[in-house]
């Protein structure tokens, strides 16, 4: 579904991604893990075309997307839920969700998507008329994911969805991600929470200083001595 080939990227003079190869098959959850500054979020930004790569190709369903504009990428079905729950603080929950459904491909299914989001996150239904900015961190993260789902994504890019959440909510968010995937959305997940994200992932990639150092099945990576030592403290 998504195939990244020899992706290189630098912020001005600082090179942050070195020959990244990464593949996501339809129906999978793929986790990209690594420490701060490993290039995880930058990889996502390259896919959603918020930045332009130096070289390399990104194919989505056979189409080269490095030449597209970011809004065209969204129309193709790749939607990023940005890091740090970037919701619209002065719109209500319902209005925030509606914002996700204005693109052509999502308009017709607005109401059914809204129902789907409310079924996944009953809390959002309760807070439907509340202003986004007045909700708790966990609720805002739910809203950000829900808003992403309103665009009918084929591939959902999640950037640190567990960042800053309480341990109880962290488990909750990962369960919901699994559920979204079961409903047929392919997921590319970027996380610092290595254990949880590899646990739910079909496959995973480990990034270190801008390079892919390991890849494989989620559970294999969890048992990998290097991963256990570097990330899990075992």
């Amino acid at each position: 579904m998504l195939k990244i080939d020899k992706l290189n990227f630098s912020y001005d003079d600082l090179k942050v991604l070195w020959d990244i190869d990464l593949e996501v098959h339809e129906g999978e959850i793929v986790s990209v893990v690594g420490s701060n500054g490993a290039g995880k979020s930058t990889t996502l930004k390259n896919i959603s075309r918020l930045v332009r790569p130096d070289s390399g190709s990104i194919l989505f369903q056979g189409e080269e997307i490095t030449k597209l504009e970011s809004h065209q990428v969204v129309e193709r079905g790749i939607v990023q839920v940005p890091e740090g729950r970037k919701i619209f603080p002065e719109m209500t929950v319902r209005e925030n969700l509606r914002m996700g459904s204005f693109i052509k491909s999502a308009k017709a299914t607005r109401e059914s998507n809204m129902e789907r989001v409310f079924t996944l996150f009953p809390r959002l239904k309760e807070r439907e008329k509340q202003l986004g900015g007045t909700m708790s961190g966990g609720e805002q993260q739910m809203l950000a994911i829900g808003r992403g789902l309103m665009t009918n994504p084929k591939l959902l890019l999640l950037d640190e969805p567990s960042l800053g959440l309480s341990p109880l909510l962290v488990g909750n968010i990962f369960e919901i991600i699994k559920e979204i995937n079961r409903q047929g959305v392919t997921i590319l997940l970027v996380e610092q929470n290595v254990y949880q994200s590899l646990r739910i992932a079909h496959r995973g990639y480990v990034l270190e200083t801008g390079r892919v150092v390991l890849s494989g099945k989620g559970e294999d990576l969890l048992n990998d001595p290097h991963v256990r030592k570097a990330f899990l403290g075992m």
Binding site: L50, H71, R98
Partner: peptide, 23 residues
């Protein structure tokens, strides 16, 4: 109108608006 929502989204958070496919 839809335009009004887009404008407001851009005002409140450009990055979020960007990620939703707003040009």
């Amino acid at each position: 109108s839809k335009l009004g929502y887009y404008f407001q989204a851009i005002r409140e958070d450009q990055d979020a608006a960007h990620s939703l496919g707003i040009n």
